[in-house]
Every structure is written in structure tokens, then in C-alpha cells.
Design a protein around this nucleic acid. Structure first.
Lengths: 243, 243
DNA sequence: TGAATGTTTCGGTCACGGCCGAAGTGTGAG
DNA sequence: CTCACACTTCGGCCGTGACCGAAACATTCA
């Protein structure tokens, strides 16, 4: 029975995430923005003192990192890997038969488009993935994704320069399972670059205090043109055809 | 600040994993085999009563599933997704500067070859991935993987029939980050099929009470031939070039 | 300098949950 | 039928950790 590599510290990490207040903090940071301790305390739903303790623990556990800036302290997720692990937990947390779907306007905005750490998620992400796939720019095959040469040219023309080699260890192109729609969408370095570019163009805008993204008027036009999205992509579709 | 989908149950799931005994149980089940409550209690390092309670909680939380068989109760991970989430946690748990590497013989066996839920991990997995990549059977690109037509033929000839379409939702071909070597290897449906086939051929054998895999004499020959592995692939290599 | 704001430290309360011993249920073997 | 084994339920102990009020520390602004 003694058989494990070294310290089985999965438990420590999971315990760190396994507190409601801390999970709220981490979820908030999944938005991809660095947030102050004060903001996080509001997300967490506990007082500033308590939040401070939580933040110290999360930092100690290397799940988040902080950057001091004046009298503020900005916290962010420590790494890609943390975001990925949280994503994995979200996937199984959303599971089960207790999917209430208490759809409100806020919820609907999140379902349409939101950030998932550093890339776009929600129906928009799925529409983009479908388009990129259909036009042969990116090949999705059951959970994996690869960019084609044709795709490289397209992205380059769109203002996203794909670095030549894999000099960065960061996944160039990967998929990420959507918790609201339960289908994979585009993540990885390309997913990040795409989000950045769409924000830069003003096609998407961050909604303050939220992970949701607003599709601007210009964005509706530009996205439809550039990616040839189907007409009704913004409309609410039947929730999640689960396997 | 109220902004989350529905119940933020990440915390519940993580709390479930965030106990040493339960994490041990789940880690043991990552071996891919269904195990009895008694076996799991030995892995967990607590008494049978306590283990029983843990198993009930994990079942209730849908992380594991049980199958009664006579007077035994066999437990297994509830789904792929659970395995994937655990993998994500392992990745960040292995992080940090406190990598002791207290290498023992047992540990070394695990590093050479082991199961990771349903596919091969360890140095063998990396050697296989390198080979499959070099010979153009599978294209790895920064965290994603795709099988080529050439690869499909190769696997078919090796006794692994790749189902024509993506009728199964299960990822055909994906990567999985190795905790011991910190490089991606082959997972997904193909990874599973490959492990099964290697066991079937008798090239690999499961070591009882362990996740480790033994490379048989026949296996050393067969693997070297079929996959043209480099000569010294079984030798211990420098641990983990981390980014 | 003093006031305002953001954040952490301290001290003490309190509840949740892991743990085991003992006893109870169910299944298979002699 | 009775024993042995696998596992679960019950009851009680006890430690860990989340929480808040109060106060201290730090930074910016007036």
C-alpha cells in the first residue's frame, strides 16, 4: 500500500480550493484579471480580515500570486496550470442531475460570452470554433486541436502573429470544455491571442465586475463578416446536450 | 459581485478531494482498476470504518461509482472527467520547489512505466510519444495531438482498430502531462487502446497492488522493434527540465 | 501633520468533520 | 446452521480551521 511518489499533496491543494470563500476567490480570478484584496473579499462573501487569511494561504500554496501596487495588492492565478486544474474541477462540479438552470439576465450574458481565464468561452466561443473548423483553419478532433497552415495565414491576416516555433512551452492550441454548453472550444495561446485581438478591435468589451463579455455593435458586424458566423448564433439555444 | 452561474459547487468537489485519506483513495483509483473497500482502506491509511464513510461521501459526490459483486464492493472513478480533474490537481501539486525526489526502487518502477487511469505514463509513455511523433503517426503540437492517416494505418496493423467517426464523445487522441517527467504523453481513447493492446500482447504486465507496469522480456524486444525506441530508453534520465 | 482608505495581525469563539471502538447487516463457505 | 469475512452504522472524542471584532500597519491625499 505504500506506493506513492512522494508527499501526496493533492489533498493539500484540493483542501485549499475546497472552501467556499476560497473557491469564490479563485473563480473570480478565473476571469483573467488581477483583482485587489478588497474586491476579492466581496466576491468571497466574507469580511476583509477573513479574506486576507485566505489570500495568504492561497499564496503560500502557490495557487495565486500577488503584485503590490501602491496601497493595493493585486492578486492573480499563479499559472496556466492552476487555471486548467480549476477548469477540470468546474467540469465535474457542473455534472450531475442537479442542473437547476435558473436562467437570469446575468446568467444569460455569461452564457453568451465570457472569459475563461485568458480566452473566450460561451456560445460565442463555440460559434468561433465551428467557423474555424469549417473553414479549415483549425482541425478539432475529439478534444484536441491543431492549426493548419491555412489557419496560420488567416490568423496572421487578422493581426495575430503566430510565433514560428514552439519556443514557448505554452500550448499553442488546445481545447477547453465549456461548463455552460459542455462542448470544447478554443483555448491555449491562440485562444488568448484571439481574445486580446477582439478586445483590441473593440468587438468585445469586458463588463465590469463580471466575467461576462459584451459583444459590441461593431463586434456583431465584424464577427459575422470575418468568421462568417451563422445568423442566429447569439440566440439562446437549448441547454447542453449531455452525453 | 453576485455573478456566478448557479451553486458554486467547485468548493464541494474540491473539499471532497481535499482530505488526505480520500485523496489517497482517488489516487489509487487513478490506476484504472476497480478496487474493493478493503484494499482502498489500506491505501487510505485509515481503518475500514473510516474508509467506509469516505467512500460513501465520494459516491454521494459522484466522484466514484460502486459495483457490488458478492460480498465485495468494487469502487472505480465515476468518469473520465474525474480522472482528468485529478490529473490537473496532480500537475499543480507536483509544482513548487519542494521536489524531494526521494528515489527508491518502487519510485523508480513508477517512473519507468505506470498506468494513469487508463493509459501508459512514465518514461515509456514519453518514448512512445516521441516515436509516434517522429514517424509521423501522431502530430503533437504544444499540448494537442492528432492522428494522421498514416498513423491510423499503423495502429490498425498493430491490432488497434480506430473507429471511423467520432461517434463516441470520448477524446480520440489527447495529451496528458506526466507528473514525473513533466512532458505530455499520449492519452485519450488511443492511449487507452494502446495500453490494452500492450497488456494483451504480454509486453507489459501490471504489478499487483501498484500502479506500476512491468516491461516484460518480450516487451523489451517488441517495443524496441515495433516503435524503434532509442537504445537507452529504460535508463534513468535527468529529472524534469521544468520551464 | 492628520484623516481616509486598503490590508493585515491578533485573540477568542464555535462548529464541522475525521477518527476509532463497538456493534450491526449481509454474503459466502464448511 | 454457524462461522468467517467484508463492509457499514452508531456514538463519542478531539483537533483543525473558518469566522468576526478590535486594533495595528501602510499608503495616499489634504
Amino acid at each position: 500500500m505504500p506506493n506513492f511518489p512522494s508527499g501526496n499533496t493533492i489533498a493539500e491543494v484540493a483542501a485549499l480550493i475546497g472552501d467556499a470563500a476560497r473557491a469564490n476567490i479563485l473563480s473570480a480570478l478565473m476571469g483573467g484579471h488581477a483583482l485587489t484584496a478588497g474586491e476579492l473579499s466581496r466576491y468571497a462573501g466574507v469580511t476583509a480580515q477573513t479574506t486576507s487569511g485566505h489570500l495568504a494561504k492561497l499564496t503560500e500554496g502557490r495557487l495565486i500570486a500577488l503584485e503590490k501596487q501602491g496601497r493595493h495588492r493585486y492578486y492573480r492565478l499563479a499559472s496556466q496550470e492552476v487555471a486548467h486544474a480549476l477548469q477540470g474541477l468546474m467540469t465535474i462540479a457542473a455534472d450531475g442531475p442537479k442542473r437547476h438552470h435558473p436562467i437570469g439576465p446575468r446568467d444569460e450574458a455569461l452564457r453568451l460570452a465570457r472569459t475563461c481565464y485568458d480566452h473566450v468561452a460561451g456560445r460565442l466561443a463555440l460559434a468561433l470554433a465551428d467557423s474555424l473548423s469549417k473553414r479549415g483553419y483549425i482541425v478539432f478532433a475529439d478534444g484536441a486541436a491543431l492549426m493548419t497552415e491555412k489557419g496560420r495565414r488567416f490568423f496572421s491576416g487578422f493581426g495575430i502573429d503566430v510565433e514560428p516555433a514552439a519556443q514557448s512551452k505554452r500550448p499553442l492550441c488546445r481545447t477547453c470544455l465549456d461548463w455552460s454548453e459542455r462542448r470544447p472550444h478554443l483555448a491555449g495561446r491562440i485562444g488568448m491571442a484571439l481574445l486580446d485581438r477582439l478586445l483590441e478591435l473593440g468587438w468585445l468589451a469586458r463588463i465590469p465586475e463580471s466575467r461576462a463579455l459584451k459583444v459590441t455593435k461593431a463586434g456583431q458586424l465584424g464577427l459575422a463578416n470575418t468568421f462568417q458566423l451563422p445568423a442566429g448564433w447569439m440566440d439562446y439555444s437549448a441547454p447542453s446536450r449531455i452525453p
